[in-house]
């Protein structure tokens, strides 16, 4: 007799536990407010990344097309993947001194792991992380970017 009671108890206990689980899924079924899906391409206008989000490395230029990069090459040295290449040239200053300036700051987005070491070590804060995230392109070559704009030059002003 006891075994039959235990048998029935087991069945009812099981059914109760199963119903409890169904209660959870049932709750969400009747509460569409709990839906967390983001409708991505539609919410593009309102979608804002956090200001520290590491999207891609950029070199900010001011209104006079001037940047802060001194072509020191520390970012290139610190990059673990070789995503940054610095091509510098020697320019004569008006005083007649020779000075190294940046010719091309090449950034391979496809190789970057967003470790932030280049930005952390840059002595003149010339590069920053941009919050863009739509990096898909049809051609891999487009992932190689030149960060300094053509015709830009070193800013005379203070470091940022």
């Amino acid at each position: 007799m006891r075994s039959i009671i235990n048998y029935l108890k087991e069945i009812f206990g099981t059914v109760r536990a199963l119903l409890k689980g169904m209660g959870v899924t049932g709750y969400y079924f009747v509460h569409p407010r709990e839906i967390v899906t983001q409708q991505y391409p539609e919410n593009r206008a309102t979608l804002k990344m956090f200001d520290r989000f590491k999207g891609e490395v950029v070199m900010p230029h001011d209104e006079n097309n001037e940047h802060h990069c001194t072509a020191c090459g520390i970012c290139e040295m610190n990059c673990p993947n070789g995503s940054i290449e610095i091509i510098s040239k020697i320019q004569l200053t008006p005083e007649g001194k020779k000075k190294k300036v940046i010719a091309k700051h090449i950034y391979h987005l496809g190789m970057c792991t967003f470790c932030n070491l280049c930005i952390k070590t840059c002595p003149s804060n010339a590069i920053i992380m941009e919050q863009t995230f739509e990096h898909a392109v049809f051609n891999r070559a487009k992932l190689t970017k030149v960060l300094n704009q053509p015709g830009s030059k070193l800013s005379k002003g203070d470091k940022k």
């Binding site: 899924t25 049932g26 969400y28 079924f29 569409p32 709990e34 839906i35 967390v36 899906t37 409708q39």
Partner: peptide, 9 residues
Amino acid sequence: VCAFMQCRV
């Protein structure tokens, strides 16, 4: 049905 149960659309 499964989407609504799983907090999706």
